[in-house]
Amino acid sequence: MRVYRPEAGKLVLREEPVPEPQRGEVLVRVRATSLNYRDLLILDGDHFTTGPGNLVPVSDAAGDVVAVGDGVTRFAVGDRVLNAFHSHWIAGRLPDTLVGYGNGQDGWLTEYRTVSEQALVALPDSLTYEQGATLPCAAVTAWTSLDGVRPGDVVLTLGTGGVSLFALQLAKARGARVVATTSSAAKAAKLTELGADTVLDYVATPEWGKAVLDATGGRGADRIVEVGGPGTFAQSLIAAGTHHAEIALVGFVGRGGAAVDFMDLFRSGATVRKIWVGSREDTEDLVRWLEARPIEPVIDSVHPFERADAAVEHFRSRANLGKVVLTHA
């Protein structure tokens, strides 16, 4: 089988034997994968790792079960599946130890992958492989970030990355009002098309936290899907107003930024909740939701498996608006 492994920061295509599923495992023929920001960090050596440096990258995939090991009961040959982002977090509280794809164990940028039957979720017929492959990290992160959001709540999303776009779509499906930020007119138009009620240009309006307050009559956001980290957190606190909003702390795409003022934090009364993507149960809940209330994942471009390098460079350029997907078929 063909499989990619990193060497000196580059992806190298290699030939390796097709693995055989052991007891409790299934063999998946990978049909599509999608890229996330963490994949670039791992390739660049800028993300924590708990395994060797030549692990197969990429955490998100969809495909077909082509063989099963002894004792497997959850899936059969021919079933369509996607993976849960965390292979050992089934439900409930976050485990003490997590082993991530690409940084702790081999990921999914391969033609075949054996995995525990417990680490997979059924892919409904309503989703293509390419759409299914966009769900495990970005969509589930958005889903858990919005837990408890009610109709009429104000949700703030930042930028046009995968998590933010899914958060916008899911928040609108929940009946929320969405304020979104971006830095380009073209991306602002896409955010509006997806349902954003207010779009703010964070370059033209660097004090966009105050602009969120103005756009909501002083109320601020009830839920902030905070993907920027140090680059945006200070403004997110201002956007939270003073009515006990929740900030879902997702990532750290923005590396620089103003220091957080303690009094802004104190006055906001905001709750900060770290998001660790989600469990298999969260993934299953999201898939059931999508079957009942379909939304179409925003896919920017699809690249063939043989051109994973081109997909990575396109994603690295940040010119994309939506998920960058590789098709393995």
Rank of each mutant, 00 (worst) to 15 (best):
E111I: 08
E111V: 07
A84Q: 07
F85A: 02
H86D: 01
D106P: 11
R93G: 11
G102K: 06
L109E: 03
G102A: 05
F85D: 00
Q105M: 15
L109G: 03
L94A: 10
Y101F: 15
L82N: 06
Q105K: 13
D106T: 01
Q118K: 09
Q105F: 01
L82Y: 04
P95T: 13
T114C: 12
G104T: 00
P95H: 09
G102R: 04
A122H: 11
W89L: 04
S87M: 10
Y101M: 12
F85P: 02
G107F: 00
H86M: 03
H86S: 09
Q105R: 14
P95M: 12
A84T: 09
N83D: 12
A119E: 03
H86K: 00
W89T: 04
L98S: 06
G104L: 01
V81F: 05
V81S: 05
T97G: 05
V81P: 09
E117K: 03
T97A: 13
N83M: 08
W89R: 05
R113T: 08
Y112T: 08
L98K: 07
A119G: 04
L94K: 15
N83L: 05
V81M: 09
T114D: 00
A84C: 08
L94D: 08
V99R: 14
V115N: 00
V115A: 08
R93C: 06
H86A: 03
G100K: 00
L109W: 03
V115M: 07
L94H: 10
N103E: 12
F85K: 02
G92K: 06
L94S: 10
V121T: 07
G107E: 00
Y101L: 12
L98Y: 09
A119Y: 05
S87Y: 12
L94Q: 11
L109D: 01
D79L: 08
L94P: 12
W108H: 06
G100Q: 10
A84Y: 07
I90G: 03
T114P: 06
V81E: 07
W108S: 02
V115Q: 02
R80Q: 15
R80H: 15
T97I: 15
G92N: 07
N103C: 14
G92M: 08
S87D: 12
T110G: 08
F85T: 02
S87E: 14
S116I: 01
V121P: 05
N83A: 11
Y101W: 15
G92V: 02
F85V: 03
A91I: 02
T110D: 13
D106W: 01
L82T: 15
F85I: 04
W89H: 07
D96A: 15
R80C: 14
W89D: 06
V115T: 13
R93E: 14
T114Y: 01
E111P: 13
G102Q: 06
L98W: 09
L82P: 03
D96T: 12
T97K: 15
A122M: 04
H88P: 03
H86L: 04
R93F: 08
V121Y: 03
G100V: 00
D96S: 14
H86F: 07
Y112F: 13
D96V: 11
L109T: 06
S87F: 10
V121A: 08
V121W: 04
